[in-house]
Design a protein around this nucleic acid. Structure first.
Lengths: 212, 212
DNA sequence: GGGAATATTCCC
DNA sequence: GGGAATATTCCC
């Protein structure tokens, strides 16, 4: 089978279909050295989102299409969708890989869940629906607001690091407080000690003089 | 162009060439819940290594081949290698992506670097050689010992976490030592203090009795 | 050559 | 549905 995306680079539009692209498909990694307000080097819409939007938009509606209200999309024939549609846009033909990406971007699976067994429509029971608040028919401008999840391990590591840094901070404060407290306590004790010693010594001297 | 690896899954052998595979090509993620000595679920050789080994082994030698000694491999025609050979094994046809993967696995680029400009052979000056101690012609068994680099950020995070944990450990020890030290110091001071007060008080009492 | 992001795979 | 690995891309 011909693989139309073979030489595709990020930033070029999909080569498999017509090109009246209404959404930004380029992707640029945010320059690590620039501030986040730099207008030229911002990361743009991930290709996954623009590809998926176009894919649903242009798909044979008997395989996959928008819902009637346009607020979700349905894959009616997972088999055909995987083998015939996905490879037009992605470097694979696995439905589960597509679903994994949807999951990364926060899409949720919708279920019809009929109450009665009799209500199960054999025609539509195998349909798979996906929903994302910002993934709507005729509203590609919303796509920009969809954020990909950062990896959980990174998240965890960051939290771990932050927790440990806080602990180090608190411990250093404690050490400083203990040093100050110890110094003051010893200073106070020494003061009292010397005062009482002096007082007793004076008394001894006075009495010693009287004894003489 | 036909894309032979389209439906390939990890664990299946490359479908583009003959199949007298002498090396393990399956890949299984290490089960996180099992001990590292579990023989059935170990991660095997990454596909990148087995694919690259076969690729060099089977390549048209005018495009890429092993060195004469078999201890490195040379890409003689980067252009053709990228467009014709890479996509037989990988989901792309970019030489830089291939090089990036080599880099992940610890391969080094070799240069001929002739001393004299005259020594530059226009035939071979554009050759690109790669070397890895464990990537040798006729020794596929060495491939298993090649380890992919873990991501630098993870590495960094791990080191950061370890450093911070050590710091927390040291600070907690310091706090304990300070507590013990302070207690002993105050105890010692109190002891001296009481001894001298007692001694002086006794002397005062003795003198007071004499005065009476 | 390598950092860091997204993409794809595999597993639980 | 999501964790974690490898794969691919893009950038410095």
């Amino acid at each position: 089978m011909v693989h139309p995306t073979k030489k595709q680079k990020r930033g070029s539009s999909s080569s498999s279909s017509s090109s009246s692209s209404s959404i930004e498909t380029s992707y640029t990694v945010k320059a690590s050295s620039s501030s986040s307000s730099c207008p030229t080097k911002q990361h743009q819409l991930p290709l996954f989102l623009s590809k998926t939007y176009h894919m649903i938009d242009r798909c044979d509606p008997t395989i996959s299409t928008w819902s009637i209200a346009g607020d979700n999309f349905v894959v009616k024939d997972v088999e055909k969708f995987a083998s015939e549609v996905l490879p037009l846009y992605f470097k694979h033909s696995n439905f589960s890989s597509f679903a994994r990406q949807l999951n990364f971007y926060g899409f949720r699976k919708l279920r019809s869940d009929p109450i009665l067994t009799n209500d199960i429509d054999p025609q539509t029971s195998c349909y798979v629906r996906f929903y994302h608040e910002k993934f709507q028919k005729d509203h590609p401008e919303l796509l920009q607001t969809i954020k990909r999840a950062t990896k959980a391990s990174d998240q965890q590591s960051k939290e771990d690091v932050d927790t440990l840094k806080l602990e180090v901070y608190k411990l250093k404060n404690l050490v400083t407080e203990m040093e100050v407290g110890m110094e003051r306590k010893i200073s106070d004790m020494t003061y009292d000690y010397n005062r009482r010693i002096t007082s007793l010594t004076t008394e001894c001297d006075r009495l010693a003089n009287l004894v003489k």
